[in-house]
Computed example of a mutant assay.
Amino acid sequence: MHALVTGSAGFIGHALSRRLLAAGFGVTGFDGLSPYYDVGLKRARQADLAQSPRFEAVEARLETPGALLDVMARVKPDLVFHLAAQAGVRYSLIDPGAYVEANLVGFANLLEAVRAHPVKHLLVASTSSAYGGNASVPFRETDRAVSPLTLYAASKLANEAMAHSYAHLFRVPTTAFRFFTVYGPWGRPDMALFLFTRKILAGEPIEVFGEGAAERDFTFIDDLIDAIVALSERPPPMPSEGGPVSAADTLSTVAPYRLVNIGGGRPVRLDAMIGALEAALGRKAERVLKPLPPGDVIRTHASPDLLRDLVGRLPETPLETGIPAFVRWYLDYYGDQ
């Protein structure tokens, strides 16, 4: 089996590629190494993957016409995992064009490449931000997601709709999944846990948005990868070949397509996360409480029912285990600075 992973130098793409290589896959990593955050960290992730002779790195951007099409024609992967994107909720207020190019134009190019070279299963990353202003909790995949609060969220909702249309037209089995606040070793420097760790070690105050009361459904990276790999083995059937697995299923009636949350359904207050980080670092944080910035929500809370129905298990690593694992990696990679 051969897999193509877009965004292989990213946090989640790197972790997924490592897992696939360990399972015996050949992996082609496709990544443009954008400068949104530290390119050195991205190159270190790629170098980590390159220790396997079954990994090939392709440095190119999805927005470049024909770039992925050429790779797909040569590699002919069995599975495609699409994790490349312009990420970040707040950055979409600064550079909206980056989201249009990477998340809309780039994704359209990916769909065309898969159309030309069909695969056994296309797996597409979305986000819990897609739920936007939804006030009903927990967030269920069957909820109407029509109130995105940022262009980032809107672009990912568009990706879900685009993927469904191609699944219908060209019969490529497709699973889209919405991530919930992923953290862990090799994480993203723009995420709160990474920022807080750096500032606490430097003796600098941390800005706590939502005044510590905001809640997030934290998902440890290993749990997330477990779920993605398990879902890759459950491609949605054609409408004429199978039906929903349960009442929670989002299986389309007109396409081999479904949407799945990946989250444990156990939201935690941000101040509790900071407490776990302080314990792992052995240092106290100086907290500066601030209101939520535009585009942020007070709570994310996944309904895990469909994920459980499909793969039989859920993300379960507690912060008290996951945060020390991140801190150990951080100190090994950066040192006590």
Rank of each mutant, 00 (worst) to 15 (best):
residue 127 T to G: 03
residue 132 G to K: 10
residue 161 A to G: 00
residue 140 R to K: 14
residue 151 L to T: 08
residue 157 L to N: 02
residue 129 S to C: 12
residue 127 T to Q: 02
residue 157 L to I: 05
residue 146 V to S: 11
residue 139 F to H: 15
residue 141 E to V: 07
residue 156 K to N: 02
residue 151 L to W: 08
residue 145 A to H: 04
residue 142 T to K: 15
residue 154 A to G: 09
residue 128 S to A: 14
residue 142 T to D: 14
residue 137 V to W: 14
residue 159 N to Q: 13
residue 138 P to N: 11
residue 141 E to H: 03
residue 154 A to R: 03
residue 132 G to S: 12
residue 147 S to T: 13
residue 161 A to H: 07
residue 158 A to Q: 06
residue 134 N to Q: 12
residue 151 L to V: 11
residue 155 S to R: 04
residue 141 E to G: 12
residue 146 V to L: 10
residue 149 L to V: 04
residue 130 A to W: 00
residue 146 V to I: 12
residue 131 Y to H: 15
residue 145 A to Y: 07
residue 139 F to Y: 14
residue 158 A to V: 00
residue 146 V to N: 13
residue 127 T to R: 00
residue 133 G to A: 15
residue 156 K to I: 04
residue 147 S to K: 01
residue 129 S to K: 07
residue 157 L to D: 01
residue 127 T to D: 09
residue 139 F to P: 06
residue 130 A to R: 06
residue 144 R to L: 12
residue 131 Y to N: 10
residue 150 T to H: 10
residue 158 A to N: 02
residue 137 V to H: 14
residue 139 F to W: 14
residue 136 S to Y: 14
residue 145 A to L: 13
residue 145 A to K: 10
residue 137 V to I: 15
residue 132 G to Q: 10
residue 156 K to R: 11
residue 134 N to H: 08
residue 156 K to E: 00
residue 132 G to H: 04
residue 160 E to L: 00
residue 147 S to V: 05
residue 128 S to D: 13
residue 132 G to E: 11
residue 130 A to I: 04
residue 138 P to V: 08
residue 127 T to N: 06
residue 147 S to G: 02
residue 134 N to Y: 07
residue 149 L to T: 09
residue 134 N to F: 02
residue 129 S to F: 11
residue 154 A to V: 10
residue 155 S to Y: 01
residue 128 S to W: 09
residue 147 S to L: 01
residue 152 Y to K: 05
residue 142 T to L: 14
residue 144 R to Q: 10
residue 134 N to R: 13
residue 145 A to P: 03
residue 149 L to H: 04
residue 134 N to M: 10
residue 143 D to I: 05
residue 155 S to W: 00
residue 141 E to I: 06
residue 139 F to I: 03
residue 156 K to Y: 03
residue 159 N to D: 06
residue 133 G to I: 06
residue 133 G to N: 11
residue 128 S to V: 09
residue 144 R to K: 10
residue 143 D to A: 15
residue 135 A to Y: 06
residue 135 A to P: 11
residue 133 G to M: 03
residue 128 S to Y: 05
residue 143 D to W: 12
residue 161 A to D: 02
residue 155 S to G: 03
residue 139 F to S: 10
residue 137 V to N: 11
residue 150 T to E: 12
residue 161 A to V: 04
residue 133 G to F: 09
residue 142 T to R: 13
residue 133 G to R: 14
residue 135 A to H: 05
residue 153 A to G: 08
residue 156 K to M: 07
residue 154 A to H: 06
residue 150 T to P: 13
residue 148 P to G: 03
residue 129 S to L: 09
residue 137 V to P: 03
residue 149 L to N: 09
residue 157 L to W: 02
residue 145 A to R: 13
residue 157 L to E: 02
residue 159 N to A: 08
residue 142 T to Q: 15
residue 151 L to K: 04
residue 154 A to D: 10
residue 131 Y to R: 11
residue 129 S to A: 15
residue 128 S to T: 09
residue 146 V to Q: 08
residue 141 E to Q: 02
residue 136 S to M: 13
residue 153 A to K: 00
residue 131 Y to E: 10
residue 160 E to G: 05
residue 129 S to G: 12
residue 136 S to T: 15
residue 162 M to D: 01
residue 158 A to I: 01
residue 129 S to D: 13
residue 149 L to K: 08
residue 150 T to Y: 12
residue 148 P to W: 03
residue 153 A to C: 00
residue 137 V to C: 13
residue 134 N to P: 08
residue 129 S to M: 11
